[in-house]
Design a binder for these strands. Structure first.
Lengths: 229, 229
DNA sequence: GATGATTTGTACGTATGTATA
DNA sequence: ATATACATACGTACAAATCAT
C-alpha cells in the first residue's frame, strides 16, 4: 500500500500507469462493482494530485469500467443482470466471428500452435489442475483472437472479455466444468483445423453459451446495485 | 418528486458537451484525420481553460477517435488502410450478429416498422433522392441494431459505425448504388420477416461487403499518415 | 428544511519535455 | 549541435454542488 515516490523508470505517463493498475484491479475483481472511487483517496493512494487521477478516471469511464455521475463520486461500473447477459451474448458473437475468420486465415504455424496448446491442456484436465487450465484457457482464446488477423476485432473482443471477466472467474469450480470445457474446445479446434468456418463459429457460440450459463450460476446475488462502498 | 435544480438544457457537464461536439465533427468528417488539436486552441475555441479540454481529449482518445502521443499535440486519429478494412469487416460481423438475433427476436411491431421503412425507401430510389435515401438507410440500420434487443451489441456496432462513417459518406454517389443498396436491403428484410437467422446474417454480410468496397473506391488517397496541418 | 463538511468542476501556474530555427 | 519557443504534465486554489446531520 505504500507507494512513496514515483519510480523513475516509467513505462508511460502516470495517468496510463494508474489507469492500467485500476483497470487490472477491476478486471481481477479486487475492486467490486459499485465500489466508490473518490478522487482524493485515489490521489493519496498513488501519491499524485487529483488532476492525473481525474484523467485516469476519464479513460476508465470511456472504457466502461467505471461510471462517473456528474458531481458525484465515481464508482466501479455496476452491471445489471440484463447487461451482463447481453455482454456474454456479445462475447459469443464476437468470438464466433473471430473463429469464422480464423478458420479461413490462420497460418499453418498458428494452427499448429493452437492444436499443441489444446492437446497439452488435456493433461491439465486429467490432473484437475484448475489454475493451470484457466491460464491455458486464456491463451487458447487469445490465439483465436489473434488468428482472425484483425486487430480491430481483437480489440473489441478483448475489451468485452475484460468487462465480463470478474464474473467468469469462478466458473471452473463447477464440478465437471474442466472436462466439458476441453470437449468444447476440441470441437472448435477440429473445425478450424479443417477450415470449416461455419462449424467453427457455431462451436464457439455453443462453448460461450455454456460458459455464460456456468458463470451465471455464480452471479445469483446481484439485483439492484446497492452502493456497497 | 423530480426537481432538477439545474436547467436540463445544459445536457451534462462542459466536458461532455465538448467531447460530443468534437466527436461529431470527427465523425462528420469536418475534422479530417491527422488534424492536430492543440489544447490551448481548443480551450480558446470553447471558451474554457485547458483542464476540461484535457479531460474531453481523454474521452475521445479512449473512444479511439483521437490519438494522444505523450508530450505532443493530440490529433484526430489517422487510420491506416489496413485498420479501415478491419473496421469495415468488423462492422459486417457485428451487423450480421444483430441481424441473426433480430430475425429471432424482433416483435411483430418492429418487423412491420422495418418493412414499412424499407418499402417506403423504394420511392426514394426511383426519385434518385440521394440525401433522403441516405437518411432512410441510417434509420434502416438503426432498426436492425435495436431489433437485436441487446444494448451492448448495439453500443459496439454504433461505436464502430461512427468510426468508419467519415469514409462511407460518399458511397451513394456511385452510379447505381442506390438501387443495389435497396436490393441488398430487400434480401435482409425478407430473411428477417421469415425468421431465418442464418440467411439474415449472411445477407447483411454480403451487403456490408459491397458497402465496404464502394467506400474504398473513395479512399484511394490515403497511405502513410503525413501530418496534414 | 437549513447548515456545515466533503467532493467535484474549473482555472491557472510552474516544471519538464519536444520540436524547431 | 545549441538555443529558443511552445505544448504538455502535474500541482494548487477556489467556487459550486452534494451529502450528512
Amino acid at each position: 500500500m505504500t507507494r512513496p515516490k514515483r519510480p523513475l523508470v516509467r513505462s508511460g505517463t502516470t495517468v496510463e500507469e494508474m489507469a492500467r493498475a485500476l483497470a487490472d484491479e477491476i478486471v481481477r475483481g479486487t475492486l467490486a462493482p459499485g465500489t466508490k472511487l473518490g478522487e482524493g483517496g485515489l490521489g493519496e493512494r498513488f501519491g499524485v494530485s487529483r488532476t492525473p487521477v481525474r484523467e485516469a478516471l476519464g479513460h476508465l469511464s470511456a472504457m466502461g469500467l467505471v461510471e462517473r455521475p456528474p458531481n458525484r463520486r465515481a464508482m466501479v461500473a455496476p452491471i445489471t443482470d440484463r447487461r451482463l447477459t447481453e455482454m456474454f451474448e456479445a462475447m459469443g458473437e464476437l468470438e464466433a466471428s473471430c473463429a469464422r475468420l480464423a478458420a479461413a486465415r490462420m497460418t499453418a504455424g498458428e494452427r499448429n500452435a493452437l492444436d499443441a496448446l489444446h492437446q497439452g491442456a488435456r493433461a491439465l484436465v486429467r490432473a484437475g489442475a484448475q489454475e493451470a487450465y484457466e491460464a491455458a484457457n486464456s491463451r487458447f482464446h487469445g490465439l483465436l483472437y489473434e488468428g482472425c488477423h484483425s486487430g480491430y476485432l481483437r480489440d473489441l473482443v478483448v475489451a468485452t472479455r475484460n468487462r465480463v471477466s470478474p464474473f467468469r472467474r469462478a466458473q471452473f469450480r463447477l464440478p465437471g466444468r474442466l472436462e466439458k470445457s476441453w470437449d468444447e474446445h476440441d470441437a472448435i479446434v477440429r473445425a478450424i483445423l479443417r477450415g470449416d468456418s461455419e462449424a467453427a463459429a457455431q462451436a464457439v457460440r455453443a462453448h460461450l453459451f455454456t460458459v455464460s450459463a456456468a458463470s451465471a450460476a455464480f452471479v445469483t446475488d446481484r439485483h439492484a446495485p446497492p452502493p456497497k462502498e
